[in-house]
Design a protein around this nucleic acid. Structure first.
Lengths: 295, 295
DNA sequence: TAAAAATACTCCATAGGTATTTTAT
DNA sequence: ATAAAATACCTATGGAGTATTTTTA
């Protein structure tokens, strides 16, 4: 059996007239009769009652007709779903992100993508930069939002967001009232930072800035969560240096100040990059990249 | 597009290997490659990623594969429903019946039919013999259970049940204690009967029996429902002659007695026949006839 | 008698086969 | 070097056309 048989059957069932049906199908009447006969032979039951002067569906033909209609609907559906999926308009994408990305680009990116591709399922995983690279290679995520730099020949990446660092001070700190902080003035302060392995791409510029200001920061506490660092600062445990977007998460008892080294603003050191498998060209991933890189 | 394309696609999607898939399909590899290419060209999107050494489904191919599976399920379903319908195992049948048939064959027949063909929808209509013939011709019912005889060239019929007539007497009637009733002894009794047009095939034998016994019954009341006749008998309004199966509907205050005319039992005068359109050979109707006539 | 489906046959488009090439590992 | 898909080309099945017959209303 081929779809041809079903197409022909459907037309004859609609017209109840082999001649007219053949005409609408743009074929001659005899081959149409033949095909319907072949179909009936294969099915093992009669579809039509032909009385030379009139054609009628048998009860089995009627029942079959209803089901055949569904077959063609299902076929249309299959083609539609396939095409949408091929365009990236339908499917799923799994995205990893560093926690701090939730304060800056992640929400906007997701919003834009969902608006353009409402039928793509998004799966989100908060992961460190390092784990994202592992998950990417394992195929557990399709895209990562990480703290660059990374060096990996099998992965492609592009910086999509950069921001300045700020100093976080307790509100009663003696420098809290200034318009900016000369980094050297923090030389003797206790520092609260995140572990280097969590985001070396962010950690190293912070340390390098301190070195440029002539000191090595005295780290009294390491915290995995940036939120926790802010909490400890507000509790007077020390000061910290963080990406400026952390200010989005308002917190009493903490003041943020721009950083200067030798009178010059320290800018754009905190970066977020999007990473993906260089050989991955899945449609949803490409659509997300289009949205994600367009800024 | 033909089912062939979808069958081939499904096999390649399962095997992820053109050579093996071709082998299982009992065709050579090059035509298989060609057909898949044709399918992709018609669909307008790629189904497979071929890297010479390995074949993988694209996301669109995966989505399409799931939908194609459904198409074949729907096709199997269509064939199954068609075949069952052609055998009369699936479908619907509309049946007319005279009210008195509910006391004898109708319940058993329905039970037997439902047991053998549980997937056939049965529609029941209580109608007089006359209306059943009209409804049959109008196609509103497919089968009738009527009181014969009927003469109609477009309808076929067969008697499927016959029973004797009995006299219905009030319990305090002076003949109520007898083992049988000699019909002549009811010559002066008031009779309660149904209107002749309701079931002439039953009415006429009753009147003929009375004539044979030497009298014309004095009909004091006509009722459409047999139940009502029995009620009136119990209320001492008169006597009646009814099919013996009326005894199934137990009623206080009424006694039933066999009829004799000149010392001979009067038997098998109440008949029920099954009627159908002579040109109707719908499968469900034929299956019902097989069950209905098999007694 | 006429309308419409079936039959008989002919033809050619294309599904499928064979031989070979290409390509990635 | 080898496995596997693509390409090139050929064959032949069967889908579709034309002419005709059959059937019944």
């Amino acid at each position: 059996m081929e779809l041809r048989h079903l197409r022909y059957f459907r037309m004859v069932a609609n017209e109840l007239h082999f001649g007219r049906a053949a005409e609408k199908l743009h074929i001659a009447q005899p081959p149409l009769s033949k095909q319907i006969q072949d179909l009936e032979a294969e099915l093992g039951f009669e579809l039509f009652i032909r009385t030379k002067r009139s054609v009628a569906l048998t009860p089995a033909g009627q029942a079959f007709s209803i089901e055949v209609t569904q077959i063609f609907q299902q076929l249309d559906r299959a083609i539609d779903i396939g095409r949408k999926t091929s365009r990236g308009e339908l499917g799923q994408i799994s995205i990893g992100f560093v926690g701090s990305a939730t304060y800056n680009i992640l929400p906007l990116m997701l919003q834009q993508f969902r608006y353009q591709y409402p039928n793509v399922q998004i799966e989100l995983h908060e992961l460190t930069t390092g784990r994202q690279l592992i998950w990417l290679r394992e195929g557990r995520i399709d895209l990562g939002l990480i703290r660059p730099p990374i060096i990996a020949p099998d992965l492609a990446s592009q910086v999509i967001f950069q921001e300045s660092l700020v100093v976080a001070l307790p509100i009663n700190h003696h420098l809290a009232g200034a318009d900016f902080i000369e980094l050297a003035s923090l030389a003797v302060e206790p520092f609260i930072l995140f572990p280097r392995e969590l985001a070396p791409g962010l950690y190293d510029p912070i340390i390098a800035s301190c070195q440029a200001a002539g000191f090595s920061p005295q780290i009294v506490q390491e915290c995995i969560q940036m939120q926790t660092i802010v909490s400890l600062v507000s509790a007077n445990m020390g000061v910290s240096i963080l990406p400026e977007s952390i200010q989005e998460a308002q917190r009493h008892g903490v003041i943020y100040q721009p950083i200067r080294v030798g009178g010059v603003n320290v800018e754009q050191l905190a970066k977020i990059a999007i990473v993906w498998r260089i050989d991955d060209n899945s449609p949803t991933m490409n659509r997300f990249l289009e949205v994600g890189l367009d800024r």
